[in-house]
């Protein structure tokens, strides 16, 4: 299944892109996608434990299942204000 993946703030700079389309196997979970992007973008590794993930604009957990067409956003801890 095809997913739309977006990166924000420092993650965008470390990944070298703001978004990409990634193919995942059916029944993949957020954790599977996280492993894939960490493999593809090793500079993100230092953020593995603090990485925040949103699925279709709602905060997601590692064991959430993905569906074709999902938009998955990866970003670092927030620092607004």
């Amino acid at each position: 299944m095809l997913l739309k993946v977006k990166y924000f703030a420092r993650f965008r700079e470390l990944a070298g892109k703001s978004e990409e389309a990634l193919e995942m196997h059916e029944s993949a979970m957020v954790l599977d996608l996280k492993r894939l992007i960490l493999h593809d973008h090793p500079l993100l590794s230092s953020y593995e434990s603090s990485m925040i993930v949103a699925r279709n604009e709602n905060f997601a957990r590692d064991d959430d299942y993905l569906q074709a067409g999902d938009e998955i956003d990866f970003f670092p801890p927030v620092s607004g204000g």
Binding site: F8, F75, V78, S79, G80, G81
Partner: peptide
């Protein structure tokens, strides 16, 4: 309001 915005609003500063 300001505490909550700083805590969990997806905004980042450089």
């Amino acid at each position: 309001i300001i505490d909550r915005i700083k805590l969990d609003c997806p905004i980042w500063k450089k």
